[in-house]
């Protein structure tokens, strides 16, 4: 515990140092897209989320390894998603999809998660407003007013949501869950609000794949924005015009 604190303190100092040394210089010396530092500072707890920010993610499918489930495992651990041995009702916030082009036979592997749409169908259809989009683009479920009608699950084009089918024990304090309500990827909002990256992104980077890039889509200087400018990318079900917050490269 102490060593972690010391490490994060050190990280903080290093971050400040690099920040003060000048963002431009730091960016120039880094390989494009490699996101070692985050110049943004965590906002205080009493300050509301800002609509100046739009959190988003780039999935680089060319770097995503077939059979690798680091992101999924990290997510399950972060949210305490323990499988009950019932795959049809077990919750999954992020999953790996293997694709094979029917014509060419080319194979792809990529993670699928809540796409944090700007005009999210789940938010549109929710009768009580439990399904909502935070001003910084993160789509969430207010567990207190979700009645468990599952209309959002019918509406989501990405099958991103899970319904809690049973009583739960051993919950994670940062992400309380409740039987009979719907849940999905939160972009690790509890981490983002503390200036940390989502667990899946961190795990992917740690595993050396760097297939996931998280950041502020509205900030032209963010690592994410740079990569989105550099790499051709697309939205899944772009035909629906949802302006999703998760973009894919290489598929």
């Amino acid at each position: 515990m102490q060593s972690t604190n010391a490490k994060s303190k050190m990280n903080c100092q290093r971050r400040k140092f690099i920040g003060r040394a000048g963002a431009a210089a730091a960016m120039l010396t880094l390989a494009p897209g490699v996101r070692l530092v985050d110049l943004a500072l965590a906002r205080p707890a009493d300050e509301p989320a800002s609509d100046k920010v739009r959190w988003g993610m780039l999935v680089d499918a060319t770097k995503c390894a077939q059979g690798c489930t680091e992101c999924v495992d990290a997510c399950n651990e972060e949210f305490g998603l323990e499988g009950m041995g019932r795959p049809k009702t077990d919750a999954q916030y992020i999953r790996k999809i293997d694709l094979k082009d029917k014509t060419t036979g080319k194979r792809y592997s990529l993670p699928m998660l809540c796409q944090h749409c700007e005009t999210a169908p789940c938010v549109d259809v929710c009768p009580t407003g439990a399904s909502f989009r935070r001003v910084d683009g993160i789509v969430l479920v207010d567990k207190h007013i979700c009645i468990g009608c599952r209309y959002c699950m019918m509406a989501c084009p990405f099958k991103a949501r899970s319904f809690i089918h049973e009583n739960l024990t051993n919950q994670v304090p940062e992400a309380p869950r409740g039987k009979g309500t719907v849940e999905s990827c939160t972009f690790c909002v509890h981490r983002v609000d503390r200036d940390r990256e989502p667990a899946c992104v961190e795990a992917c980077t740690r595993a050396g794949h760097e297939a996931l890039v998280f950041g502020d889509m509205n900030d032209p200087g963010s690592g994410l924005s740079q990569r989105l400018r550099e790499l051709p990318n697309r939205q899944i079900r772009a035909d629906l015009g949802l302006n999703s917050g998760v973009r894919y490269h290489g598929v």
Partner: peptide, 22 residues
């Protein structure tokens, strides 16, 4: 059949008027 049938009162007091369900 709702996941939380006891929250019927929530359905009666919180409305999202873009929802056809509402």
């Amino acid at each position: 059949d709702l996941g939380r049938p006891e929250r019927l009162i929530v359905a009666m007091t919180y409305y999202n008027f873009k929802s056809i369900f509402a």
